[in-house]
Simulated scan of single mutants.
Amino acid sequence: MDLSELTSRLHAIRDANQWRRYHSPKNLVMAASVEMAELTEIFQWLTEDESRALPPEQLTHAGQEIADVMLYLLQLCAELGLDLETVVQAKLADNERRFLP
Rank of each mutant, 00 (worst) to 15 (best):
R20D: 00
Q89T: 13
G81N: 05
Q18I: 10
Q89R: 15
Y72G: 03
P56H: 04
R14H: 06
A67V: 03
H61T: 10
M36F: 15
A67N: 06
V88T: 08
L71A: 12
S51W: 04
T7I: 06
A90V: 06
A16H: 07
L54C: 01
K26W: 08
E38H: 00
V87H: 06
I13Y: 15
G63Y: 07
N17V: 13
I42F: 01
Q58H: 10
L6G: 08
L3H: 10
R21L: 07
V88Y: 09
V88P: 01
R97P: 05
D2T: 11
E5H: 05
Q58Y: 11
V34H: 01
G81R: 08
E57P: 10
E85I: 09
D94N: 14
R52M: 01
Q44I: 07
Q58K: 13
T40V: 10
S4C: 00
T60R: 14
S4M: 10
E5I: 05
L84E: 00
N27T: 11
L28H: 04
M36S: 15
D15Q: 12
L84I: 13
R98I: 02
D83K: 12
R9S: 14
D49C: 03
K91D: 11
C77F: 07
E96Q: 13
L28T: 06
D94Y: 14
D2R: 15
R52H: 10
T86I: 15
L6C: 00
P101G: 08
Q64W: 06
E41S: 07
A93V: 05
W45Y: 11
E48Y: 07
E41K: 15
L10D: 03
M30S: 05
R98Y: 00
A16T: 11
V88Q: 08
L82S: 06
A67D: 10
R52Y: 10
L10W: 01
A78S: 12
L3V: 05
A53G: 00
A62L: 04
E50S: 08
S24K: 09
M36Q: 04
V88D: 01
C77A: 02
T40L: 12
T47F: 09
